[in-house]
């Protein structure tokens, strides 16, 4: 048995921040996204925990155990706490602000471009995929019929996705160059990020706390999950 304090403490902090920022509703899709994983964790641990003998009930060849259930709930809490803290970052931090700030702290421009385009590509890809599906359906591609009929639509749907992404690369490169992407020297920003002393102190505090916790945990004085 590992500890409950870690995941539950984390969950409590994340939920408190989410409620304070009135993000309760916005967090729901992120929570739902963990559902498939959570269900499989619950089933696998509850029924298949190795060596556990305190049975709750038996279903044919497998039986649920209390140990397994406790382990499953703990793992669930950990997964949910992790997912929600990522959600909290996504919902509270403007990507542009984050990237601007990273650049200001000396991270390479290319690295930032890679991070930024990876993040920003997702919504654009979703939009593009929608347009492609519409265009092919308008040409009579059956996306509502049987599985076999729908399977034939893979090439017409994936094709434009890849081809247009590739053909846009050159255009994007030139657009970046036209805006002096590879110009040497440090860039200045027109949009200073507000960073209050309290926030800075809190960030450092959190960083130190993490270091101390890891230290204590590794040395065995405060075993964390």
């Amino acid at each position: 048995m590992r500890g409950w304090s870690g995941p539950l403490g984390m969950l409590a902090i994340v939920l408190a921040i989410a409620l304070a920022a009135r993000l309760g509703r916005a967090m729901r899709p992120y929570l739902l996204a963990t559902l498939p994983l959570v269900i499989s964790i619950l089933l696998v641990n509850t029924f298949l925990y190795p060596g556990a003998t305190d049975r709750i009930l038996t279903l044919g060849p497998v039986s649920a155990t209390w140990t397994g259930l406790a382990e499953a709930l703990q793992a669930t809490a950990r997964v949910v706490a992790f997912a929600l803290s990522v959600a909290l970052l996504a919902l509270t931090t403007a990507i542009d602000d984050l990237l601007d700030d990273l650049e200001h702290r000396g991270l390479g421009r290319r690295t930032i471009f890679v991070i930024g385009s990876a993040i920003r590509t997702v919504p654009r890809m979703i939009e593009r995929a929608g347009e492609i599906v519409d265009a092919q359906r308008a040409r009579g591609l059956d996306t509502e019929g049987s599985v076999w009929r729908r399977a034939r639509g893979v090439v017409p749907l994936a094709g434009p996705m890849v081809l247009s992404a590739l053909s846009e690369v050159e255009e994007r490169t030139m657009a970046l160059e036209a805006r002096a992407f590879s110009a040497p020297g440090r860039r200045t920003t027109l949009r200073p990020l507000p960073d209050r002393p309290a926030e800075r102190a809190l960030r450092w505090g959190l960083f130190l706390a993490a270091v101390v916790l890891v230290g204590l945990s590794v040395s065995g004085r405060f075993p964390l999950p």
Binding site: I132, A138, R139, D142, T143, P160, L163, S164
Partner: peptide
């Protein structure tokens, strides 16, 4: 179904690159 209605109505979209695959 849209695939059935496509027999009656053909719609050409604005951006050709959203459909070209062949």
């Amino acid at each position: 179904h849209v695939a059935e209605l496509a027999r009656t109505v053909g719609l050409a979209f604005q951006n050709p690159d959203r459909q070209i695959f062949a």
